[in-house]
Amino acid sequence: MRDAVIVDAVRTPVGRGKPTGALAGLHPTDLSAHVLTALAERVGLDPVLVDDVIWGCVSQVGAQAGSIGRYSVLAAGWPESVPAVTVDRQCGSSQQAVHQAAAGVVAGQYDIAVAGGVEMMSVVPIGSARAAAGLGEPFGPAVKKRYGVEGFNQGLGAEMIAEEFGLTREQLDQHALDSHARAAAAVDEGRFSGQIAPVTTPNGVVDTDEGIRRGGTLESMAKLKPAFKPDGVIHAGNASQISDGAAALLVTTSEIAARHGWTPIARFHTGTVVGTDPVTMLKGPIAATEKALKRSGLSIDDIGAFEINEAFASVTLAWLAATGADYRRLNPNGGAIALGHPLGGSGARLMTTLLHHMRDQGVRYGLQSMCEGGGMANATILELL
């Protein structure tokens, strides 16, 4: 029986998604090509052997249009015979890309696949695809009638989740401070050095995640104004950062890996996806985790590390409350509040960080999940080899 293993994973540093950001000005296909090239070089992969590249991207418009996965392959100088497909499952796009790569490998459609994703939010701002050519919202009268709303807002959804789980602003702010502190410690201890492929820009080499802030306090956080409700608890300091970044993973079978002399990091153990209420929208990781654990036969205590995307602090703290997971195992190297959230690249970034943490710390099982626009979530369980 065929299995799916991840041989290696690499990511760019995450830059701030603004015109002054460290990676701003680079083309998304070139940033994607950078991690594709770095991945191939790390493992000695001849790109001609790649059966498919599955690439996540959310805002598929402008510089990220036209199936960016394909142009990323060409930008990397890989053979024209290597195909690619671009996936949109909102923020979970590149996590979904890994799921599709693993499924294709297990099914025998692929022997070797590369999965990953990119988002350059400094180049293609969030909401660009929706606003393109003034073509309107991605939902019509039937959806509005079903839910009794004129639109969907993730920030308001995050506020609803905070209210439902009784989360205070102080709790959310402390969680955000913890994210920055954990990420800063990871940088200081060199925990990211093995997973980051430094990027050369016109302004120099970028080798460190740009969004990490040190020295924050509850007092300084309290000065930030709520972003979505005048009396709300969600603000810029306890929400994920707008970012630039890309990541890539090599997926194959254990037999093929051995044939090439590769030592895989982990086995793709379990993958699930769920749909949830699109109004609150962001509770999907709770249901996805439950489904993944049930399917795998594992318990929450069997998992040694969790990467749950910090879209908003209320998302991860609600997930923690619902699952009973150990807070110390949640995003041990910081999350998207500190490191940033380059939409279509985030799923692959989280998985890259999780894989390297599992290998470095000897963690047998790791679980990843992230909320996704429209009310969805993927969950993945990896097993260290």
Results as ranks from 00 to 15, higher is better:
48 V>A: 15
120 M>N: 03
322 A>P: 01
220 S>I: 06
256 I>R: 15
352 T>C: 13
38 A>D: 03
316 T>N: 01
339 L>S: 06
292 A>S: 12
88 D>L: 04
366 G>S: 07
204 G>A: 14
61 V>R: 02
164 E>A: 15
38 A>M: 00
50 V>D: 09
1 M>T: 13
43 V>E: 12
139 F>K: 07
169 R>E: 04
133 A>H: 15
34 H>P: 00
215 G>A: 11
249 L>V: 05
27 H>R: 15
375 G>A: 13
148 G>V: 08
127 G>T: 04
198 P>I: 05
241 Q>V: 03
332 P>Y: 05
104 G>Y: 03
80 E>P: 00
325 A>E: 01
13 P>K: 07
329 R>F: 00
64 Q>P: 06
32 S>W: 00
260 H>L: 03
310 E>N: 10
303 I>Q: 11
31 L>S: 09
232 G>T: 10
217 T>C: 02
117 G>P: 00
353 T>P: 01
30 D>E: 15
307 E>R: 05
182 R>H: 14
174 Q>Y: 01
100 Q>E: 13
365 Y>Q: 08
82 V>T: 13
292 A>D: 05
63 A>M: 08
36 L>V: 02
265 I>A: 07
308 I>A: 10
29 T>G: 02
275 G>K: 04
75 A>Q: 13
278 P>C: 12
83 P>L: 04
190 G>Q: 12
268 F>P: 00
147 Y>H: 13
252 T>D: 01
115 A>T: 02
110 Y>D: 00
82 V>F: 05
158 A>M: 12
325 A>F: 07
63 A>H: 14
191 R>C: 07
96 Q>C: 06
232 G>I: 06
156 L>A: 08
254 S>P: 02
118 V>C: 02
134 G>V: 03
266 A>W: 13
178 D>C: 08
116 G>Y: 11
163 E>Q: 15
116 G>F: 07
216 G>F: 10
3 D>C: 01
27 H>G: 11
380 T>S: 14
348 A>P: 06
235 H>S: 03
221 M>K: 09
98 V>N: 11
9 A>M: 01
117 G>E: 04
15 G>D: 04
27 H>W: 11
285 P>A: 11
224 L>E: 10
371 C>P: 01
310 E>A: 09
5 V>E: 00
25 G>E: 11
214 R>K: 14
90 Q>F: 15
231 D>P: 01
260 H>Y: 07
120 M>K: 01
228 F>H: 11
291 K>H: 12
309 N>E: 05
140 G>H: 14
109 Q>S: 07
129 A>T: 12
290 E>A: 09
106 V>M: 13
294 K>R: 14
133 A>G: 14
302 D>R: 04
234 I>Y: 10
282 L>S: 02
154 Q>D: 11
381 I>E: 04
277 D>R: 11
340 G>T: 07
108 G>N: 13
237 G>H: 03
145 K>A: 15
57 C>M: 05
310 E>V: 10
192 F>A: 09
29 T>Q: 14
3 D>F: 08
290 E>W: 03
224 L>T: 13
376 M>I: 12
57 C>T: 10
185 A>W: 07
115 A>L: 00
128 S>M: 08
186 A>T: 06
182 R>Y: 14
229 K>M: 06
359 R>D: 11
6 I>N: 02
171 Q>L: 07
320 L>Q: 15
59 S>M: 15
274 V>A: 08
204 G>T: 12
252 T>F: 00
206 V>C: 01
